[in-house]
Structures are given as C-alpha cells and as structure tokens.
Amino acid sequence: MRLRYLLLALSCLTWPASAWADTFRCGSQLVNTGDRAFEVERACGEPQIRDLVGYALSPNERREAVIEEWVYGPRNGMFNILTFEANRLIRIETRRAQ
C-alpha cells in the first residue's frame, strides 16, 4: 500500500507544468488544431500577445512557413498558448500563471 502511494507521489512530481490539447474554448466557441488564424481570431478575438517565433521549411524545403504564438489569458489562473505554422493552428498549450 505504501509503495502505491509512493508511486502516485512520484508520478505527480513528474507531471508536466503544461499540457497540450486539441481544442480550446473561447466563450461559447471551440477552436481546434488545424483551424486557420482568421477563424481563431474571429472566435476568440485579438490575443493578449502575438509573437513571431521563427520560420520552418516546408517538406520539400522550398518555402518558408511563419511560426507564431498567440497568448490568451490569464483566465482562471491559466494561460493558453496557441502555436500557428503557415497560419494553421498546430498546437494548443495550457500553462498555469505564476
């Protein structure tokens, strides 16, 4: 029984400080990975922060795609960080405000 509690405690310590999701709720709207930037902005409004992260090469390495991060929040103590590549939402990350 003690071993079970010890393993549970260790797993909580290694839990990531952030989590990834496939959807993000903006009021009554849902935003999903794969959505376009203008669709996200229409659903969620202007982000608090909009950062240009860099560029990525396309699979055939002929074109560059812009990578941006949009930050919404804090809401209920959480920030939502949305990552766009070539104006498509590729990752939704949630982090606790510090």
Rank of each mutant, 00 (worst) to 15 (best):
M1A: 10
R2D: 13
R2I: 14
R2K: 12
R2E: 15
R2S: 14
L3A: 15
L3I: 13
L3R: 11
R4I: 09
Y5N: 08
Y5Q: 08
L7V: 13
L8P: 03
A9T: 11
A9S: 14
A9I: 12
L10A: 12
L10G: 10
S11I: 05
C12L: 15
C12A: 13
P16N: 10
P16Y: 08
S18V: 03
S18Y: 12
S18H: 13
W20G: 13
W20D: 10
A21S: 04
D22W: 10
T23F: 02
T23R: 01
T23E: 01
F24H: 06
F24C: 03
F24L: 06
F24E: 05
C26W: 14
S28D: 10
Q29T: 11
L30W: 11
L30N: 06
L30I: 09
V31Y: 01
V31S: 02
N32K: 08
T33Y: 06
G34N: 04
G34I: 04
G34T: 02
D35C: 05
R36F: 01
R36P: 00
F38T: 04
E39P: 00
V40C: 01
V40R: 01
E41Y: 10
R42E: 14
C44Q: 03
G45I: 04
E46F: 02
P47Q: 04
Q48A: 15
Q48E: 11
I49D: 15
R50P: 00
D51T: 08
D51L: 06
D51R: 14
L52M: 09
L52Y: 09
V53Q: 07
Y55F: 15
A56D: 10
L57E: 10
S58F: 11
S58E: 06
P59G: 14
P59Y: 09
N60L: 15
E61Q: 12
R63P: 02
A65D: 04
V66I: 05
I67A: 05
I67M: 09
I67G: 00
W70A: 03
W70E: 05
V71G: 09
V71Q: 11
Y72M: 06
Y72D: 02
P74Q: 03
R75H: 14
R75G: 13
R75C: 09
N76W: 07
N76E: 14
N76A: 15
N76I: 08
G77L: 14
M78V: 15
F79R: 04
F79V: 01
N80M: 01
L82D: 02
T83M: 10
T83L: 06
T83V: 06
F84I: 01
F84Y: 08
F84M: 02
E85G: 03
E85Y: 02
A86Q: 12
N87G: 06
R88P: 00
R88W: 00
I90L: 08
I90E: 10
I90N: 05
I90C: 04
R91M: 12
R91N: 13
T94F: 11
T94E: 15
R95Y: 04
R96N: 11
R96Q: 12
R96T: 12
Q98S: 12
